[in-house]
Simulated scan of single mutants.
Amino acid sequence: MINKRFALLLIVVLAVMTFTNSVGAKGNLKIVAAHNQTSPENPYQIGLLSFKKVVEELSAGSIQVDVHAGTLGTSEAELVEKLKLRAADVVLVSPGFMTKTGIGEIQLFALPYLFDSYEHWETVVDGKVGEEMARIVNEKSYNDFKLIGYWSAGVRHYYGKKPIQSMADLDGMKIRTQTSGVVANFWKKTGAIPTAVAWGELYQALQQNVVDAAENAYPYFVQQNHHKTSNGKYITETGHDYTTRFLLINGHKFDSLTKEQQNIILTAARECVITERAELYRQEKAYKKLAIDEGAFVNEIDREPFIELAKPLQDEAAEEIGVKDLLNQIRNLK
Results as ranks from 00 to 15, higher is better:
Ile2Gly: 14
Lys4Ser: 13
Arg5Ser: 13
Ala7Phe: 02
Leu10Trp: 02
Ile11Trp: 04
Ala15Pro: 00
Thr20Trp: 14
Gly24Ala: 08
Gly24Met: 08
Ala25Met: 13
Ile31Asn: 03
His35Cys: 02
Gln37Gly: 01
Thr38Met: 12
Ser39Arg: 04
Pro43Glu: 07
Leu49Met: 09
Leu49Phe: 03
Lys53Gln: 13
Val54Trp: 03
Val55Trp: 06
Glu56Asp: 03
Leu58Lys: 15
Ser62Leu: 07
Asp66Cys: 02
Ala69Cys: 10
Ala69Phe: 06
Ser75Pro: 07
Glu76Phe: 02
Glu78Thr: 13
Val80Thr: 11
Lys82Ser: 05
Leu83Trp: 01
Ala87Glu: 15
Gly96Phe: 12
Met98Gln: 13
Met98Trp: 10
Thr99Ile: 15
Leu108Asn: 03
Pro112Asn: 00
Tyr113Cys: 07
Tyr113His: 12
Phe115Asp: 04
His120Cys: 04
Val124Trp: 10
Val124Met: 04
Asp126Asn: 15
Glu132Ser: 08
Ala134Tyr: 06
Ile136Asp: 10
Tyr142Gln: 15
Lys146Met: 11
Ala153Phe: 02
Pro163Tyr: 05
Met167Ile: 14
Met167Leu: 14
Asp169Arg: 07
Asp169Leu: 06
Asp171Trp: 02
Thr177Lys: 03
Thr179Gln: 08
Ser180Trp: 14
Val182Met: 05
Asn185Met: 05
Phe186Gln: 04
Trp187Gln: 09
Lys188Gly: 13
Gly191Tyr: 10
Pro194Asn: 07
Thr195Glu: 08
Ala198Phe: 12
Gly200Lys: 14
Glu201Asp: 14
Gln208Trp: 02
Gln208Tyr: 05
Asp212Ile: 01
Asp212Trp: 00
Asn216Ala: 13
Pro219Glu: 13
Phe221Tyr: 15
Val222Ala: 08
Val222Asn: 08
Gln223Ser: 15
Ser230Gln: 15
Gly232Ala: 06
Lys233Ile: 01
Thr238Tyr: 07
Gly239Tyr: 12
Tyr242Ile: 11
Tyr242Asp: 11
Thr244Asn: 12
Thr244Ile: 09
Thr244Gly: 00
Arg245Met: 09
Leu248Asp: 05
Asn250Leu: 00
Asn250Val: 00
Asp255Leu: 03
Ile265Arg: 05
Leu266Pro: 04
Ala268Pro: 03
Ala269Asn: 11
Arg270Ala: 12
Ile274Asp: 12
Thr275Cys: 05
Thr275Phe: 10
Arg277Gln: 12
Ala278Ser: 14
Glu279Met: 07
Leu280Ile: 05
Leu280Cys: 05
Glu284Ser: 08
Glu284Met: 14
Lys289Arg: 07
Ala296Ser: 12
Ala296Cys: 04
Phe297Met: 12
Val298Asn: 00
Asn299Phe: 00
Asn299Asp: 03
Ile301Arg: 04
Glu304Pro: 00
Ile307Ser: 02
Leu309Cys: 08
Gly322Arg: 00
Val323Cys: 14
Asp325Ala: 11
Leu327Tyr: 10
Asn328Cys: 01
Ile330Gly: 04
Arg331Tyr: 13
Asn332Pro: 12
